[in-house]
């Protein structure tokens, strides 16, 4: 039986010997709700511009990769340079199942999760074996090996990639399909945001912060760091795999050259860093900023290839706390409880 009690600014749910706390004061959730409401309006406002709708979905997908990556960076205390390997695993699993077995997105969904867990578990010992730069180097190589595999084995269709993957939704009206799929991407992003924010506000967030700061001390304080790093790596990997699943079903195509190459990885890392130096909300700011910047710069033609990294580099050096840091500095309030973690 669930018992609910009101305790100052919290609602406390007791279920057996388990306890969950829920902040009910508006200041805890007002701004995120307003932000999500604004993002929810965008597909309606731009309903007659399929290119902008596609841009919004891309930003949401990028955020779906960057949000779990922000947690992973803290929770395993290492910088993963190859999150796109898991995007590839999700995309290709969904694509191959859809093309060869004719499965729709909801049929491929559980298989993609299982594949994500499997590969996450296989690679998770790396979080305990490889430290610092070695972990980054190993994870950097992984997607490149995967890319070579997609060239080598015909089933992945090399440079052209898989196409004809079942769409997210099929109702016969292209505009309506685009808008609904857009909302799916938003729902997925908000879900990821919700999960990671809740995790950061819980004891797991504290464990992650301790591992990020000094894992040897955390171990000596009684934290089973091996267990928690593996849990964090597997869960975040599955979340990133789902971004690949969504991408494959949303665009109907999936190619290794798009997702497994270094430029895509750099884009994701830039989102994490420029958004807010690993901040969860910052990942959303970063994703939308990068997507919009990329689109705007196309008016400069080929100069875009020089301008895009140049602007990002300037921002990386000038915005020490990322784009979200500007907001936080001006609107900073001490919410209780907070975990302050600075990314290096």
């Amino acid at each position: 039986m669930v018992k609910i009690e009101h305790k100052r600014a919290l609602l406390v749910f007791r279920f057996g010997d388990k306890k969950f706390e829920w902040p009910i004061e508006t200041r805890y959730w007002r701004n995120p709700i307003l932000g999500v409401a604004f993002l929810a309006l965008l597909p309606v406002i731009f309903s007659s511009h399929p290119d902008i709708l596609s841009l919004i979905a891309t930003a949401n997908i990028y955020a779906c990769i960057a949000i779990p990556l922000a947690w992973q960076m803290t929770g395993i205390g290492r910088l993963n340079f190859g999150p796109q390997a898991f995007v590839g695993i999700g995309g290709f699993t969904a694509g191959l199942l859809s093309i060869h077995l004719g499965w729709g997105p909801w049929a491929t969904f559980p298989i993609v999760i299982i594949t994500g867990i499997l590969f996450g578990l296989i690679l998770s010992p790396l979080t305990n074996i490889a430290k610092g730069l070695y972990f980054s180097l190993v994870t950097l190589i992984l997607p490149l090996i995967f890319l070579e595999i997609t060239y080598y084995f015909g089933i992945f269709k090399g440079e052209t990639g898989l196409f004809g993957i079942a769409p997210m939704i099929s109702i016969g009206n292209i505009v309506a399909e685009l808008i609904i799929a857009n909302y799916f991407s938003l729902i997925m992003m908000v879900l990821f945001l919700f999960v990671v924010v809740k995790v950061f506000d819980s004891r797991i967030g504290l464990y992650s912060a301790a591992i990020n700061d000094d894992e040897e001390v955390a171990n000596n304080l009684g934290l089973n760091i091996k267990k928690w790093k593996i849990i964090c790596f597997v869960v975040t990997s599955v979340m990133i795999t789902l971004a690949g699943w969504f991408s494959a079903h949303y665009f109907g195509t999936f190619a290794g050259v798009t997702y497994l190459q270094l430029p895509f990885m750099l884009k994701i890392l830039m989102i994490v860093m420029i958004g807010g130096r690993g901040d969860v909300y910052g990942a959303i700011y970063g994703a939308y900023f990068i997507v919009i910047l990329e689109k705007v710069l196309t008016i400069f033609g080929t100069a875009n290839y020089l301008l895009f990294p140049l602007i990002l580099l300037i921002l990386l050096f000038t915005l020490r706390e990322g784009i979200y840091g500007i907001y936080r500095k001006h609107k900073y309030r001490e919410y209780y409880p907070t975990i302050r973690v600075r990314k290096r």
């Binding site: 464990y207 912060a209 301790a210 990020n212 302050r340």
Partner: peptide, 14 residues
């Protein structure tokens, strides 16, 4: 990069 309170809270939890 954690507050003094959080530092001790890690000990309490773990």
């Amino acid at each position: 990069d954690m507050t003094a309170l959080m530092n001790v809270a890690v000990g309490v939890f773990c």
